[in-house]
C-alpha cells in the first residue's frame, strides 16, 4: 500500500534533492507473524468460550455466537497486514523519517541533532520472536518516534548509527 509521496522538500538545487530522496525500509515480517499469532490465540480462546458456554447452557443453536470473534479474527488478520505494511522508516543524511498508519497516517521527522536518547527495548514476547523496538527521545515528550518489530541486530545497528550521528550533530534545546 502506497502511503503518500514523501518526495524532497523542494528546498534547493538538484544535488540537494538527490541527496534528500529517502530510501524507505519496511519492517521485517517477524512483527506481523507475532501480532497474527497473538490475535489468533486470544480471539481463538474468545471464540471457544463464546461458542461453548451458550452452546452447552442454552442449546446448540446459540453456539453461533462463536462466529463473532471468528469474523473479528479474519478482519484483524487483514488489518494487521495493512498496518504492518504502512510502517516504514528512512535514514537520511540529517534526519530520520518514520511513516505509519493506514487510516490515520502520521509521518515524523526527527533531525539527528535533536536526539537526546535512543532506546532499544524488547519485551518477553518480542524476545521470543526475536524482535526489538527502537525508540527515539528528544527534549519534547510529544515526539513519538518508535520503530517496532526490528531484528535485534538491525535495532542495535540503528541505535549505534543514530547515537553516532546524534553526537556529531548535537544541539541542545
Amino acid at each position: 500500500m502506497e502511503t503518500g509521496s514523501p518526495g524532497d522538500a523542494g528546498t534547493a538545487g538538484a544535488t540537494e534533492a538527490a541527496r534528500d530522496e529517502p530510501v524507505w525500509t519496511g519492517l521485517p515480517p517477524g512483527l506481523l507473524r507475532m501480532r497474527r499469532l497473538l490475535l489468533v490465540v486470544w480471539l481463538g480462546l474468545c471464540a471457544l468460550a463464546a461458542g461453548l458456554l451458550p452452546g452447552l447452557f442454552a442449546g446448540p443453536v446459540w453456539a453461533v455466537f462463536a462466529l463473532l470473534p471468528l469474523a473479528l479474527m479474519v478482519w484483524g488478520w487483514v488489518m494487521l497486514e495493512r498496518n504492518w505494511r504502512s510502517w516504514r522508516y528512512a535514514e537520511r543524511a540529517d534526519d530520520l523519517l518514520i511513516s505509519r498508519g493506514v487510516l490515520w497516517r502520521e509521518e515524523t521527522v526527527v533531525p539527528y541533532g535533536r536526539m537526546q536518547l535512543v532506546e532499544v527495548t524488547s519485551g518477553p514476547v518480542e524476545r521470543h520472536f526475536g524482535l526489538a523496538s527502537v525508540q527515539l527521545h528528544t527534549a519534547a515528550a510529544a515526539t513519538d518516534a518508535t520503530i517496532p518489530g526490528l531484528d535485534p541486530a538491525e535495532a542495535e545497528r540503528l541505535r549505534d548509527r543514530l547515537t553516532e550521528l546524534g553526537e556529531a550533530r548535537s544541539a541542545g534545546l
Partner: peptide, 12 residues
C-alpha cells in the same frame, strides 16, 4: 531553532 521534531498527521 527550537523545533525538536515535525509530524504530519492525516485522518481518513
Amino acid at each position: 531553532a527550537k523545533v525538536q521534531s515535525v509530524r504530519l498527521t492525516q485522518g481518513p
